[in-house]
Design a protein around this nucleic acid. Structure first.
Lengths: 363, 363
DNA sequence: GGGTTCTGCTAAATCCTTTTAGCTAATTCG
DNA sequence: CGAATTAGCTAAAAGGATTTAGCAGAACCC
């Protein structure tokens, strides 16, 4: 292939050599000027201006691949999310993006379907087209690929999960406390049969979870744990709806309240209850989890456990960048507090109001 | 720096040279085997197996930057989205990801805040760490950076927007038809004062939009276009809510129905109407737009204009890959049909039911 | 047996930027 | 004035995979 002066015309993208030619300097100078390496190597103002002008004239931007190859870094942080569906992550990522930008990193997102056993982002991940990843979703976090990545120098932070690999930091919200608060709130309102709809039952040995908090609250109140009141459902509105259908089905000893895995599923729950002609909160109380926007717009508005989502995103980025830039931290696990937001779906003001009589049918 | 046999130990990531050493062949062979270039260069089964075993033993994966540099392609397609908030895009991206994978491409997403005048993904985009991008959002689609990218060989597809650059294909849903159908539906149900809440007024000369369909339906029915019934609001539930507040405010000649920019804003609208003690659909009808999941779970469920979101994602990928692989298409613009889904928020069965008397107060 | 054709693999160039040792010319110093 | 700095820049290597011309040896042919 012919080489020479017309390189830019051939490929469509000008290279530093093209800029160098135009400015009458060497490619090294282009790099030095454009990256502000003035501290290392001196460049005269005159040359600097020439380079900048030439770069602008050609519309030059450094080739990402070449730069990454040489520098061994991409300045990209990737979020691996189980789905784009959940507005929860939208809030987390937005905050993360802001934080990352301040450190000179860009953020991208890969939706990784999280079918057990498959890890679709695998091929992408293994290419390591990023310096670090923040991983959400149980299956993603436990994927063996993560250890490989970590072993090869990619910084990894698990979001809301605990990785089996001790070299992988985690940034989470205190799910157990959230589960406790949600359940305790219902108990304080007089409920005695309280269901919990979850996305999946967590294996023993993993991080303490919503379910642990649920059980702790029950125990503290002297209520027996009834396994038939804990349901697993798909993490969607439809999933939440189906779970409630199940709870209201024939042969069930109906609960009077449910603590839902998240707000999304809680929306589905409200829907199912409506279809059954049950009034919320009068006939049935619902507590959500997450605190996302939709909870304010449902009828009734959702009482929920609010997460500091922005903080979560920011902290994840900071933990990651800390690891990237070799500022070793002894903190392996960051745990953020949650708070109860009382709206309408459980009835009003906490324990202040007279406790309503729950109708626990004993068949 | 010392070079040699222990390279893998130094960097943490094995290179093709490491695999070559272990397998007793040259790096070229590694590449040939691992990429299945058997058609070009013959490799014995024995060597092939040795290479594969060595690669597996070392956990080798090719360095993404080096490969991209050499091949001048990344096999990555990036979605530039104005926000992650909207479940609409979730559906589109999911389908796109599936389609892309079949062609050997991975999909990543960049949330690009879309404040007028700023294009936050800029630095990322200019690096061109991808072969093509699919861009959504007015501001993103009209960003001058797009032309630069297109000029330099990055394939660009605009989603739901029309780019000023003729070299940029677009894949969209027929918004005008959707606007017409939504409005026509309300007219058929007897409404005469119909508001339209939109995200932004589109500039003349751009693609025909919801508003055009709205106007066409009004015109066809002999109804005067009243500019005071067209409101602009933020594209969120809160934005939809505020818009309705405004419509119901003092001094307004109240409409009896509203065609909302999308389902998200329609959810906000339902909320605002509820706060005002108005019953939907009896006192006020709402039509949404998009057909996303939430519409089935609201009370009342949303009548809406459903988009073929999966198709949209698939088509965008196919248009993009077609452009990437130099299969020139004369189709600059793909337009997908929409359809009306009648649920509850406008009342039941179209024109079949007796038209209810709208209460148009003339003050 | 000598020439030809395959087989199977490798050497070396290439992609583009960054980095650092070091070169040249100008300036300063004694 | 000669030596020592300093300023300002460049040459060349490095980073890791891919690609292609072509080499060496084996097999084949008459």
């Amino acid at each position: 292939m012919r080489r020479g002066a017309t390189n830019a015309a051939q490929t469509g993208a000008p290279t530093s050599a093209d800029v160098a030619r135009l400015a009458g300097v060497s490619p090294a100078t282009i790099s030095l000027v454009l990256n502000g390496r003035a501290s290392k190597v001196r460049i005269s103002d005159e040359t600097r201006d020439k380079v900048i002008a030439a770069a602008a004239q050609l519309g030059y931007t450094p080739n990402h691949a070449a730069r990454s190859l040489r520098q061994r870094r991409t300045n990209i942080i990737t979020f691996v999310l189980p789905t784009l569906d959940n507005p929860y992550f939208s809030d987390v990522v937005r905050a993360a993006q802001t934080a990352a930008q301040q450190h000179g990193y860009a953020v991208s997102v890969i939706p990784a379907k999280t079918k057990p056993g498959e890890f679709h982002a695998l091929s992408f991940l293994q290419g390591a087209a990023f310096d670090g990843i923040i991983v959400a979703g149980r299956e993603n976090c436990t994927a063996p690929e993560l250890r490989q990545l970590a072993a090869r120098g990619v910084a990894v932070v698990a979001l809301q999960e605990q990785s089996p690999d001790p070299s992988i930091q985690s940034v989470s919200v205190d799910l157990e406390a959230g589960g406790y608060m949600a359940t305790r709130h219902l108990i304080d309102l007089g409920h005695r049969r309280i269901a919990h709809v979850t996305e999946r039952l967590h294996e023993p040995g993993t991080r303490r979870d919503r379910l642990d908090g649920y059980r702790r609250a029950l125990e503290e109140a002297g209520l027996a744990f009834d396994p038939s009141l804990v349901l697993t459902a798909e993490n969607t509105m439809a999933g939440g709806s189906k779970a409630i259908e199940q709870l209201l089905g024939p042969g069930m000893q109906r609960p009077t309240a449910a603590f839902m895995y998240n707000d999304q599923m809680a929306v589905g729950a409200l829907h199912a209850l409506r279809l059954h002609g049950l009034s919320v909160p009068d006939d049935f109380a619902i507590v959500g989890f997450d605190g996302v926007a939709i909870g304010q717009f449902t009828a009734p508005a959702l009482t929920t456990i609010d997460h500091p989502r922005e903080e979560l995103g920011r902290l994840a980025i900071e933990a990651l960048i800390g690891a990237l830039e070799k500022r070793p931290s002894d903190v392996r696990e960051h745990l953020l507090p949650v708070k109860l937001i009382v709206r309408e779906s459980c009835g009003g003001g906490k324990t202040l109001l007279p406790r309503r009589q729950p109708r626990t049918r004993t068949r």
